[in-house]
Design a protein around this nucleic acid. Sequence first.
DNA 1: ATGAAAGCGCTAACAA
DNA 2: TTGTTAGCGCTTTCAT
Lengths: 333, 333
Amino acid sequence: MSATIYDVAREAGVSMATVSRVLNDTAVVKEETKKKVIDAIAKLAYRPNAVARGLASKKTKTIGVIVPDVSATFMAELVRGIEDIARMYQYHIILSNSDGMLQRETDLIGTMWEMQVDGLLFMTAELRQEHIDTFEQAQLPVVLCRTDDPQRRIPSVNIDNRLAAADAVNYLIAKGNRRIAFVSGPIGASALADARRRGYVDAMRSHGLEPHPIVAPKDEYEGALVSVRSQLSVDRPEAVIACNDELAVAALHACQDLRLQVPDEVMVMAFDNTKITHLTRPLLTTISQPMYDFGAVAMRFLTKLLGDESIATYTVILPHLIEENESTGKRFN
Amino acid sequence: MSATIYDVAREAGVSMATVSRVLNDTAVVKEETKKKVIDAIAKLAYRPNAVARGLASKKTKTIGVIVPDVSATFMAELVRGIEDIARMYQYHIILSNSDGMLQRETDLIGTMWEMQVDGLLFMTAELRQEHIDTFEQAQLPVVLCRTDDPQRRIPSVNIDNRLAAADAVNYLIAKGNRRIAFVSGPIGASALADARRRGYVDAMRSHGLEPHPIVAPKDEYEGALVSVRSQLSVDRPEAVIACNDELAVAALHACQDLRLQVPDEVMVMAFDNTKITHLTRPLLTTISQPMYDFGAVAMRFLTKLLGDESIATYTVILPHLIEENESTGKRFN
DNA sequence: ATGAAAGCGCTAACAA
DNA sequence: TTGTTAGCGCTTTCAT
């Protein structure tokens, strides 16, 4: 059996309260007694029991992280960002995957409460009223991460996806393109994808151009490859914007399968800037999303909420960036 | 404030002990009183406090997961495997990144103890005596995941990396190759990479062939691209095996940069089978590692350890597989 | 089948 | 500056 605070107190010849004080630096302790305590701790190799501490103090120094799926490339980077900042503030993270299923999400919020997490970082494709209700019921501080709350009820960290898509359109127009297509998964499947598609459509229209949406049957490589390939053979655009990196690789390969030169004949632009954009030939130009920062900033945000530091805004918009690369090189302009 | 077990007891007109009994199904309770308790729980929307439960029972139903870096693609899949099985057995996971730094690893094992995790899943590039000592000191059940203990002191789940590398060599020889190179990061940086390199060297020698190791300055794309490119222009092999998928993409691109046809002039073989092997042209043949299974099997193993189920062996070797694809198509044979 | 009561290892008033 | 004493919300003997 391991040593308790009581053992340390006895060993040091003081009361457990004093030990607790030096442990938490919660009151001034005479230098001399402090030393005795520290020696006793070292001698017994004492380590405080975080569970007991959590019960007594009602703070567990853990935060719950609910993601659709860590194994999605960018989610892992995001989680890494969370964990780095969490460690910096002495928090631990309890990680759970929801697979984007509403039932599982609300269940998880409940069990996170049971675990007495101090706060919650929540990611989902589309925030629903059920989520909000469950947050309320659990009475937990929550920060949304790469997830929008259109009504701004819950603090969130995200980029402006509509603006980002519009920027992509403007960038390609400046490069001399007019027929610009946009590949995405099914409509309505994800608020994020919808925002990007809307940004694209609006930007096209505002330039007096006709939008060319290409809708893949599913939000992944294979389906997109087929969709883009068949679309391209019917009606060839000068450029393609993909709703995410995986779809962009599909678009790129579709072009290559049809022996279309990228970027000379068709430019391809990706969205997110995960590692895979660096693993294609030609290298993909992308709208870069700060994955790591989503996590890091959201976690920092949460520490502020928990430490009653003042916060300026409840909706943090992170900057996006166009990472220019080979797949949109030269032409016109 | 939220309801406690005491509130439920009062509401149901029974003692808290009885409530605890129906909660944990730890003793027979009369059907009638059971119903009263269940109604009270529902009425008060009661949820047990896991921290209090953990303190009283000395079981927290949480397990610690220490990985070098979740944001490495295959680590995320592995963590997903862990979490799925953990959920199945009602465990939660506390995730931490060590960046492979020994000091941080041992610190983390310590804090995991403080958190009173029921067990530990540990991943590292090379198991050291310091790790073993810290495990012992923490008195925690540990399962190594994608990590070998050559002396078999700690339970582990892995593939046979030497054998896998040898299989790759044999496969390529059967395809008609004799000059086969092997790209990896610096020697001695990772036990895993070393095992694969050794498997390669031994297999080559056993066929009376000269090994052609190519050592990249770092275990990542850029360096490997340069190393392979310069090597290929000096001394062209018929095939290249890469120590992991990222290096394989580098090797592939090195060939393409030098206008060498893959697979006709040079075959390329990858190792691990992460998503990126599906995103290249030509598609890469890989030695497939069961990433998800590493996590899932290790977690299941741990539940057995914790639930005193009997276990057959302490060293689980998972099967690897050759996923044949375009980058090693045709030739000879 | 149920209840009473003693902890689990700590924090946090309140005293001294 | 230090010690005493209640809890925190639950599990778990031990009685009944």
